[in-house]
Computed example of a mutant assay.
Amino acid sequence: MSGTINMTELREGGMQDLPAVSAIMQEAFDPRFGEAWTSAQCMGMLSLPGVWLVIASLGGIDSGFALARSTGVEAELLLLATRPATRRRGIAGALLRAVIAEARDRGVEEMHLEVRAGNEAVQLYRREGFDKVGERRNYYRGNTGQAFDAQTFARKLV
């Protein structure tokens, strides 16, 4: 998987990209919401079958990533993040569409994701055809201990 969309380079990622993934998460996810994963969590997930990582670069700088997994005819977008300095340039949309395309190539029929209630990324997911299907109360725990709800979304791919 590689390509260019609006000057954004997309490529398949791997374990060697985990430092960049961690750095992007540090910038992208506010610790008060508890959405970021640890490096160990990312490494563990990436080592599992059916998991793939897409890296987006802008001007040669890793600017975003998407991590997803498929299990049979279903897939889940696990993480999607872009550096705040590169937002509003289509990177998140390009990553999401790349993940959807890869999922289709893997025979996936439906994709799922969850996002913190109130996260502006909901607009992107809705624009790309995802519908809210549920809610998980107090799912995320921020660094102050405050809990935040997660909304679950799904989209048919066939």
Rank of each mutant, 00 (worst) to 15 (best):
G93C: 06
S2K: 09
R89A: 08
M25W: 10
G50R: 02
L80E: 05
F33E: 03
T144D: 13
L157D: 04
R106Y: 03
S47D: 14
G3V: 12
I91T: 00
W52I: 13
R106F: 01
Y140I: 10
K156A: 14
N6K: 10
E109I: 12
V21Q: 00
R89P: 02
K156T: 11
R126A: 11
L67N: 04
V122C: 14
Q146G: 12
P19D: 06
G93R: 03
P31G: 05
K132A: 09
V21D: 00
L96I: 03
G142F: 00
S47G: 15
L53C: 06
E135V: 15
G59W: 02
A101M: 08
G60K: 04
Q123E: 14
K132V: 13
N143R: 04
G118T: 12
A75E: 08
A85I: 13
T82P: 03
D30H: 12
I5Q: 04
T82A: 15
S57L: 03
A101L: 09
A36T: 01
L53I: 04
D30A: 09
H112E: 07
A103M: 08
L78C: 15
L77C: 11
E114R: 09
M15K: 07
W52V: 10
G60I: 04
W37Q: 11
I91W: 00
G14W: 05
E109L: 15
L96F: 02
P31E: 06
Q41K: 08
Y139A: 11
G3W: 13
E102Q: 15
W52C: 09
G3M: 13
D30G: 05
D149M: 10
R127Q: 09
R69C: 13
D131Q: 08
N6A: 13
S22K: 07
E74W: 07
A81H: 01
L80T: 07
G59Y: 02
E110L: 10
S70E: 10
A28E: 02
G50D: 06
A121W: 12
G90N: 07
A20D: 09
Q151A: 12
A121S: 14
A92V: 01
D30P: 10
R155Y: 07
D17C: 03
R89T: 06
P31R: 01
W52K: 01
G129C: 11
Q16W: 07
S39R: 12
L96P: 01
S22Y: 08
R97W: 01
C42D: 12
D131P: 05
R88C: 14
G60S: 09
A92W: 00
A28D: 02
M15W: 04
G90D: 06
N143M: 09
A66Q: 07
R155L: 11
F33Q: 02
P31N: 02
E109W: 10
V73N: 04
